[in-house]
Design a protein around this nucleic acid. Structure first.
Lengths: 234, 234
DNA sequence: CAAACCAATCTGGTTAACCAATTTAGATTA
DNA sequence: TAATCTAAATTGGTTAACCAGATTGGTTTG
C-alpha cells in the first residue's frame, strides 16, 4: 500500500470522508440502535483507509454520542433512532469552524446565563475561587500589564459556579479562541481594563449576594462594548 | 511491562491522570506559548503509560485548544498564556458528566437564541430543510407513532439556520442525551406531540417571516412544559 | 566571518503484529 | 430435546517497529 503522510487539513478531510462512508453504510444496511457495526479491520479494508484513521473517525462519532465502542466486543449504534442518526451525521459533516463573531456571540449568550445561575447556585468555595481570579486580574491591570488571561479565568470561574457542566464545558471550548482573537485584535485597551475591574467587582458582588437579575444585568453592562464590537465587525 | 486491558471508565481515569501530569510538567517547566512539549516517546516513558494513551490525552487537549501537534515536528503549547493554561487544565480535570437537568437547561438557552438568530439569518435553503423536518414530524405524529427524533431534527434545523457554528455544534453535542432521556422518562406523550405540531408550525412561520422576537417567544411557549418539567425534577 | 549545505537525529504519524476478553458455534451431556 | 460446556474465531485495545518530513549541529564554501 502506498504510504503518505497527511497534513492536518488532509487528515480532517479524510476523517470526513470516513464519517460519510459510515453514514452511507448505516443508511444502506438500515442499522438501528444497538446494532453492531462491522469490525474495525473490515471497515478499514472496505473503505481503503488505515485502521487508526478509522478509529479516529469512530472516536469522533463517539464524542457526538452516535456510536459506542465496547472493548473486545464491537462498535454499536447509539440509542437514537435511524432518523436522528442520519440527520445528525449530515449536520456533523457540514459543520464549519467558528469565526470570531460566532465565538463572541456564543460567549455573551453563555455568560449572561452562567452569571444568573452562579448567583443562584454558587457555593462558598465557588465564591473563594472567583475572588482569587478577581484579585489576580486587578493586580495585573494595576501593574499596567496585559490581563486577558486573568479576565477570562474570572469568567470561567463564574461558569463553573453556575453548576451546569454543559455550559461550563462550552465556555471552556470557546475560551482559547476568544483569548487568541482578543490578543490579535487588541480588543482590550488599558482604559477598558480599568473599567473591567469595577465591572468584575460589581458582578462578583451580585453573585455573592445571590441576586440573579442583578448579576445578569451587570454582566450585560460588562459586555456592552464587546457586544457592539462583535455586531459591527461584519 | 505488565499488560492490562482497561475498561472505559478506567481508561477515562488514566487519561485524566495523564492530563494532570502534563499540567504539572507545564507548570514545573514554566512552559509558555509556542514552547515544545517533550516528545511523545519521552513523555510516555516518563509517565509510565503507553504512547497511544498519551496520544489520546494530547488529542483531548488539542480539542480544547490547549495544545497543537505538528507532524514530524512536535507538540506545542497553544497561544494562550501560562495562567489561562493552568486554569483551564484544572477546570477540564474537574469537569463532570452533565445530567438531564443540565442538558435541558442548556438546550432551552441555546434554542431561544438560535430561534432568534434563525429568524434573522435563515436562507431559502434553510427554510426548505426546516419545512422538511417539520413535515416529517407531523406525519409521524399523525400516524400515532413516537416522533422524538423528528422533533429534535426540526430543532437542529433551526440551530443550523441560526448561522452560528458554535451554537449548532453545541446543540449537536447535547441532542443524543436529550433524545435518550426523553425516551427514558417519556417526556412527550401523545397530546403533547399534537400540540407540538402547531407550535412547530408557529415557530417555522415566525422564522420564515423573519420576526426574531416572535420566533423566540414562540420557542419559549413551546418549551413551557419542558421548562417546568426541568425545574421540578430536583 | 557568514552563508550555504549536508547528514545524522528527532519528530508525529502509520502500520502490522499481538493481547486477552468476548462471542460463537459445535460437541457433549443430562 | 434442551441445557451446558469447551475451544476456536472475532473483537477493540495495545504495542513496537517503521516511515518520511522536519530539525539540528557541524562542516564546507563563498
Amino acid at each position: 500500500m502506498k504510504f503518505e503522510t497527511l497534513t492536518k487539513v488532509e487528515n480532517k478531510t479524510l476523517q470526513k470522508e470516513i464519517i460519510s462512508k459510515i453514514r452511507d453504510l448505516i443508511n444502506y444496511k438500515n442499522l438501528e440502535p444497538g446494532d453492531k457495526l462491522p469490525s474495525e479491520r473490515m471497515l478499514s479494508e472496505k473503505f481503503g483507509v488505515s485502521r487508526s484513521n478509522l478509529r479516529e473517525a469512530i472516536q469522533r462519532l463517539e464524542f457526538y454520542g452516535l456510536l459506542k465502542s465496547k472493548p473486545q466486543s464491537g462498535t454499536f449504534i447509539a440509542d437514537i433512532g435511524p432518523v436522528a442518526m442520519k440527520g445528525m451525521l449530515n449536520d456533523i459533516l457540514e459543520l464549519e469552524a467558528p469565526d470570531f463573531k460566532c465565538l463572541v456571540e456564543t460567549r455573551i449568550l453563555l455568560e449572561l446565563k452562567t452569571a444568573r445561575l452562579a448567583a443562584l447556585r454558587r457555593t462558598e468555595e465557588d465564591l473563594a475561587q472567583m475572588k482569587n481570579a478577581l484579585d489576580a486580574y486587578s493586580a495585573k491591570v494595576m501593574k499596567g500589564e496585559d490581563a486577558v488571561q486573568e479576565d477570562l479565568l474570572f469568567h470561567l470561574s463564574i461558569a463553573k459556579a453556575g453548576g451546569n457542566s454543559s455550559l461550563h464545558t462550552f465556555m471552556l471550548i470557546i475560551t482559547p479562541g476568544i483569548i487568541t482573537n482578543f490578543e490579535k485584535y487588541h480588543v482590550c485597551d488599558e482604559d477598558r481594563a480599568f473599567k473591567g475591574i469595577q465591572e468584575h467587582n460589581a458582578i462578583y458582588e451580585a453573585i455573592k449576594s445571590q441576586d440573579p437579575k442583578l448579576a445578569k444585568e451587570r454582566m450585560k453592562v460588562h459586555f456592552k462594548m464587546l457586544y457592539q464590537y462583535c455586531y459591527n465587525m461584519e
